Simulated scan of single mutants.
Amino acid sequence: MNQASRTRPLVEGERFSFPHVGGRRYVRGLDVVALIERRYPDFARLDLKFLRPIAHHAAITFRRDHGTAVVVSLAPTEGAPLDLYIVNLDKAEGPSGKEPRLAPHIALPGSGAYHRYLVLGRRSHAEILAVVFNRYQAATGRRFVLRALHLEPPRAASIELVSLSEPTTERGLGVCSITRQGRRWCRIEMIEAQASG
């Protein structure tokens, strides 16, 4: 059975219970990346725009409404582009789970404007982003909330050099790019958050 036959597309009204992990009081944007990646493993472009915190209980819809938490724009490698929305259903807090284990990696010495990591083994986009976010925040003490994320997947390798540029400010948002193997992979817009959450 190939990977495409094991996946299924997101459908109108489909409901999810997103976890809260590592003591956070919010759903991680990485969990949305992981969801999309599981359902659409091959894509040419993924854009996520986070409008508000994601509720523990959320649903998929193909039209935007007042409860929209995340706008998703997806360009599959084959077929038409797809726009969908993750809509909050309630404000109940979900059970808190353990912080997921990071993919095997090596943090390389910084070079001023860049934070660099070797990620070992073929890893999902969400796993690589988790390494970068976790290590960057641990090294700098800075916390941030995702506002937008743009992914253009490169060809995966069994050992990958991943580099995060030090954020700059554009239109009041922190902006940084992440490369894999020296090729542009991800652009992030973020809001600086309080260190205590």
Rank of each mutant, 00 (worst) to 15 (best):
A195P: 13
E37F: 03
I188K: 05
R147A: 10
E160D: 12
R28G: 00
R183W: 05
L30D: 01
L10A: 08
D42A: 15
R155W: 06
S5L: 15
A139M: 01
G22P: 02
I188C: 07
R25E: 14
R147D: 14
I191E: 14
S5D: 10
G110H: 08
A75L: 14
V162I: 14
T68M: 06
A55M: 07
V119Q: 00
A75F: 07
P53I: 00
P53A: 06
V72Q: 00
D90M: 05
L164E: 08
R15F: 05
I54E: 00
D90C: 11
R38P: 01
I191T: 14
V175Q: 09
V71H: 11
I36M: 08
E160K: 04
L46I: 03
A139Q: 07
K98F: 02
V132Q: 01
N134M: 00
Q181N: 13
R8F: 11
F43V: 04
A126G: 01
E37H: 04
L82F: 08
A69D: 00
R143M: 10
P154F: 09
W185D: 02
V33L: 02
T7C: 15
D31M: 01
G172R: 03
V32T: 01
I60N: 02
L46D: 09
R101T: 15
L74R: 05
L89M: 15
E93A: 08
A44F: 04
E93M: 11
T169G: 08
A59D: 06
S5Y: 03
F62P: 15
A58M: 07
L10R: 05
R25G: 15
D42Y: 12
K49H: 11
S73P: 12
I106K: 15
G29C: 02
H56K: 03
H57F: 05
G174L: 14
R184V: 09
L129W: 01
V27P: 02
S196A: 08
R64H: 13
R184Y: 07
Y136E: 01
Y85E: 10
T169F: 12
F18I: 07
G141Y: 09
I60A: 06
P41A: 10
P9H: 02
S165F: 04
P104C: 01
S177L: 05
E152F: 07
V11F: 07
A75S: 07
G29H: 00
Q137E: 13
R52N: 10
A139V: 09
I159K: 13
T77I: 15
D90H: 06
R184L: 14
L30N: 08
H20P: 08
L129M: 11
C186W: 04
I188S: 03
G172I: 11
I159A: 12
V162L: 05
T77H: 14
G174M: 14
F43S: 01
A126Q: 00
M1S: 12
L30Y: 02
A107E: 15
S177N: 14
R187Y: 00
G172P: 05
Q137F: 06
P81E: 00
A107P: 12
R122E: 10
A130D: 12
P109K: 04
R171W: 10
H105L: 09
M1F: 09
R8A: 14
T179S: 13
N2G: 05
V71S: 08
A156M: 10
P167R: 02
A193I: 02
V87S: 07
A4T: 12
P167K: 05
L102F: 04
Q194A: 13
